[in-house]
Amino acid sequence: MKKAKKAPKTQPETAKVSGTAASSIKKWLDFDLDIDSLPVPPPRESAEDDGGDETPLLSRIPKSAPRFVYTALAAICSIVLTATLILTVEGMPRYGEDQDYMDTVTYEYITHGMEYTGAVNIVAGIILEYRAFDTLGESFVLFCAVTCVLVLLRADSADSMPEDVVFRDLSHDAILRRTVLAIVPLVFMFGVYVLLNGHLSPGGGFSGGAVIGAGLVMVSVAYGGDVSGRIVSERVFKIVTTCALSFYCLGKSYTFFTGANGLHSIVGNGTPGNILSAGLILPLNVAVGMVVACTVYGIYRMFDKRSF
């Protein structure tokens, strides 16, 4: 016998919170209950789209309470953390003393560093030769950051450009133009110097690239986006980033592969001290420097103009 037809429910009106949970569970089990009237949090406006950090369970507590609860918890957390950190430092080995582990790992780096990697600057040797996998991951962190910034801020299509954003153009300022005219050549020269001498003196790909990137940003601020756009347009940005990162990835994969399988790698170390030495470190520094320069400039462009 067909069950009596249930009166069709119009738009289920907002569920009034039934008093006892037991009665609603019983009704739910009898299966004739419209599931919407379960003790679901009160009507949609307040807790329904509750995306905030208040979970529905807390939504019944007056608004000010979570704020106080949060601050109290945060205060306890940070005090405990500070206390433990001070205690840790108190237990750490003495500052500035020769630790006993110096004679295993670091001894090898310093004594044979220059001999194997050819780099006078041992830190560059460690970064690009001994622990090269970290630095490969490093430039991909930067690549990932620039992809995220491009995804977030790029708004070349008309509709996606936010309407109330006013672009302030300070590029016609005479003082700025004279100073940048005097400074930029020095900055580029210094950046290239730091880049090329990565394996001889402190510096290297990341710091050299950042200096060159800063030079590009200065040109863009002083002479407006279109002048610097001619130096690094979107095409140049894409080509440089892709070629440099692919070269880095492939070059290092070659070294890892030959090293792991014991094959002889054709990359010689050259005589330490002059520019063209230290195997792959110089070309890698140049590649990383270009990637970092384009990234710094690209990120600035996204914040400044929201498009290339």
């Binding site: 630790q99 110096m102 004679d103 790992v105 670091t106 001894y107 780096y109 310093i110 004594t111 044979h112 560093g113 220059m114 001999e115 006078v120 600057n121 041992i122 830190v123 460690i126 003196s201 402190p202 330490p272």
Partner: peptide, 17 residues
């Protein structure tokens, strides 16, 4: 840790790691 004129003894340099 920048090697100066070939002196590679570990006592003269700071820990580079």
């Amino acid at each position: 840790p920048i090697v100066e004129n070939g002196d590679v003894s570990a006592e003269h340099y700071v820990n580079p790691v």
